[in-house]
Design a binder for these strands. Sequence first.
DNA 1: TATCTTTATTGTATTATTTACACAAAGCTA
DNA 2: TAGCTTTGTGTAAATAATACAATAAAGATA
Lengths: 227, 227
Amino acid sequence: MQDIKVAVDAVVFGYQQNTLYVLLIQQKFAGQKAYWALPGGLVKDDESLMDAVTRELKEETNVEVNYMEQLYTFGDDLHRDSRDRVISVAYFALIDSSKTNIKADTDADKVQWLPIKEVPQLAFDHNLILQTAIERLKSKLTYQPVGFDLLPKEFLFSDLENLYCTILEKEIDRRNFRKKILSFDIVEETDRFAEKKTGRPARLFRFNSKKYKTLEKEGFLFEIKFA
Amino acid sequence: MQDIKVAVDAVVFGYQQNTLYVLLIQQKFAGQKAYWALPGGLVKDDESLMDAVTRELKEETNVEVNYMEQLYTFGDDLHRDSRDRVISVAYFALIDSSKTNIKADTDADKVQWLPIKEVPQLAFDHNLILQTAIERLKSKLTYQPVGFDLLPKEFLFSDLENLYCTILEKEIDRRNFRKKILSFDIVEETDRFAEKKTGRPARLFRFNSKKYKTLEKEGFLFEIKFA
DNA sequence: TATCTTTATTGTATTATTTACACAAAGCTA
DNA sequence: TAGCTTTGTGTAAATAATACAATAAAGATA
């Protein structure tokens, strides 16, 4: 008789002002050291993996994401959870964090966005899961238009550019970047402008995901590379 | 108390003479219709996922692979196995099938290589798993040098070219393909030639995986694209 | 109101990469 | 030795990537 438990965990990324954030929770158990951890939990017998992670996210953080995909299943370390044999199917998710109301702290739980550069030691093997997710994000940014899922519906070109610079940790030539993105014909300008304090007003742009899906079916490949 | 079983399944690809094969098994159970299936089985409480799939492969098919990576975890269809709730962590593997002695058929089991174009309806959701693996193979071929794991240590350039044509289902310009591969400097010629019946003798080549790993660390990217 | 500061926007020349394309070389056979 | 078969090779044209700097728009300031 097999005795292995199945959990799901979610790495939810948010982006704001040149900083990439990850969503973490802290559950308080009497007498135990409280580690920050990825949201997640055990899968119920009658729910799909995807439903399980969606439910846990909602329960623990009140967050509903823009984009989610399976990341990797962690089950090679037999003692990744010191109590039982638990394998975790980890998910990778993106959200426009500016529009999200994360759950307020309760007596039992805390929830927060933490810059990925400031993530401390997490529970279980969650640092490894996070690291895997960061690599996935970096590589996905270059071959799928997932960056838009981290931004508001209408955004500035400079925001998009900074998002790429920040996450990929590279310098980008602004002219070439803009030329490249616009050549894909999946980002369109709106007639609105950002409210800013200083400098020339910046136009707001919008990602046309319908158009992207159409082009994708026709064989179009999104791809961003840098020198 | 959770009641979900954890299985592993392996999609093992082999290649020979312009044909991509997958390794399948058939287990005979009294009174049941016998479907072909991917090799795999339940994970033991004290073994890693990777160990489990390696063990099952050895036991069921006697095969040891050149390359293996986790593919995807199938657990969204609650009835993918009609008996119990089972999630399956699927693996993707490559092998030089010419050098492999697969297990001989027994009273209980059959094992065979089947061309992917001739795969019938399989057990459980194994057709879906296979399809996912084929897509992974196609995409990996273009950005990692995994094709070599399907070929003998020493191979003809025309074999490599045909492998790409066959799997990607595309035409390739021989000169440009050769130029591209050689430009990576990870394939070296040997001083040996193939024994052939007809035509100009063809030189044998070898993939230098150490060199590839070195270059990879320095930031080199393998990439093959076609018009 | 002229000037300064700040950020947004745009184009071109150079270089590198990708593509298209055809004929000679080597061995075998008749 | 003529013909068949498969291997092996180079160049020109087209396309894509890169490097690079001046102008536009608005508000702040003198």
